[in-house]
Each structure stands twice: as C-alpha cells, then as structure tokens.
Design a protein around this nucleic acid. Structure first.
Lengths: 112, 112
DNA sequence: CGGTATCCAAGATGATACTG
DNA sequence: CAGTATCATCTTGGATACCG
C-alpha cells in the first residue's frame, strides 16, 4: 500500500496523472491545464514520476524544443486506483452528508 | 478524489484504519498494535478521523477509563480503497521490477 | 488507562526570477 | 518552449514530559 499511496500522493499528483491519462503532454501544456501549479512543483512531480517508472520523457530536438511526458504501463496501471479514489470519495460525500463535488449526479442514487 | 485521498493520507493512517477494520480498539491497544506511532500522532489521527466522520468514540466511565474507537459506516466504506491500494501496489512492484511484498506471485515475468 | 502540551527537525509547497 | 535556482513559509511527524 505504501508504494501505491506514494505513487499518487503529493499535492497535484492525482490531477497531473489524470491529465496524462488523456495522452502525452508537454510541459507548458500541463501548466496550462493546471494553472495554479507552479513550474517548480510541476518539475518536481514529473521527476518523481519518472524515478518511480510511471512516466517517460521524449525530447524532440529542433526549435522550439518539444518535450512529451507520457505514462508508462506502470503509470497506466494507476487508472483503477484513481477510479476507486473517485468512487470512494463520492461514497464518503454521500455518507457524511456533504454536497457532490462536481455536476449533480447525486440525484437518484449514489448507493451503487 | 481529494476527499478519499485525504481520508487515507498521512503517515500511519492506512495502518490505523486497517487495525480498526478488525473491530473497535482502545487507545493503548492501538499503541500496542502500532508501537512506533507516538501518542501525539495517534491522537491527531484519531481526531482527524472523527472530524471526517470516519470514526466514533465511546467512553466508558468508571475505573480505569475505557475508550473504544470504532469505524462508522463511512469509515468501513474505505475498505475497497485500501484493497485497491494494495492491489495497485502489487501491480506497480511487478511492473517496475521490484520484489513482491508477500508470497511469490511474480512468477511469470519481470524482465519486460 | 487515555490522553494533551511543548518543542523541534524535516519536508512539502509556493512565489518569483532567471536560463538554455 | 521547457525548465532550474532561491528563498520564505506552512505543514508534518516525532521525542518527551506531563495531566485527569
């Protein structure tokens, strides 16, 4: 559990992984997707993900420089965990009586 | 995802939840189960879990004082997440080439 | 038994500015 | 475009001692 928790822990990490699940992204592109994430922290997260073997980087020489961050198979293996985090979050919100975080799908039934 | 992640984040939190999954426990009992967890941090975790509605406390007057910490329904709703954390951890370990944490079910192939 | 109060060391995070 | 360097600060976790 430690390794899984470490993989997704740290502020912005889950959001960053979520963006990468949608396909390869560049540095500035990620900055735009996550506007409140400072370049320093983004850089740190990306390096951490690389060290854990969850992300690979591909650099295209030329001008301007192009970089692509892409999930490895191990990185993609986190999808089920992210889904479970989301599902558990929803369950918690309904059990503890808070409002849903995004659109209104608390309507009929959140018990499923 | 934030709420689910918050629920299980923090050092010792998953281990603490794991113990509580086994049934109600007392403070000193938890200390014994998690020897390296200081009383201050245990106290903090327990309060945090209460604030999030994941744990309830029952105090028995008399002597000596008896306290029982018990998971609420919301707290028990975390079981699936803990299981997924474990499963994802295992998957990560085999994909990134580390040794398995428990029994050997890495048999097939770690060379890829 | 069941905690709380203090103090301290480390790490995480963020703002800002600068480089290739 | 794609980062790194620096600095200040907030948050965590742990050791220890003490209280009801």
């Amino acid at each position: 559990m430690e390794v899984a928790l470490t993989a997704v822990s740290g502020r912005w990490t889950t959001l960053l992984l979520r963006e990468l699940m949608g396909g390869p992204r560049g540095f500035t592109e990620l900055r735009a997707l996550l506007p409140d994430l400072s370049p320093k922290v983004l850089s740190e997260r990306l390096h951490a993900l690389q060290e854990r073997g969850l992300v690979t980087v591909e650099r295209r020489r030329g001008f301007p420089v192009r970089t692509r961050y892409e999930l490895t198979e191990a990185g993609r293996a986190l999808r089920a965990l992210l889904v479970e985090l989301y599902a558990t979050g929803e369950r918690l919100l309904s059990l503890t009586g808070a409002a849903s975080a995004d659109g209104d799908h608390t309507s009929g039934d959140t018990t499923a």
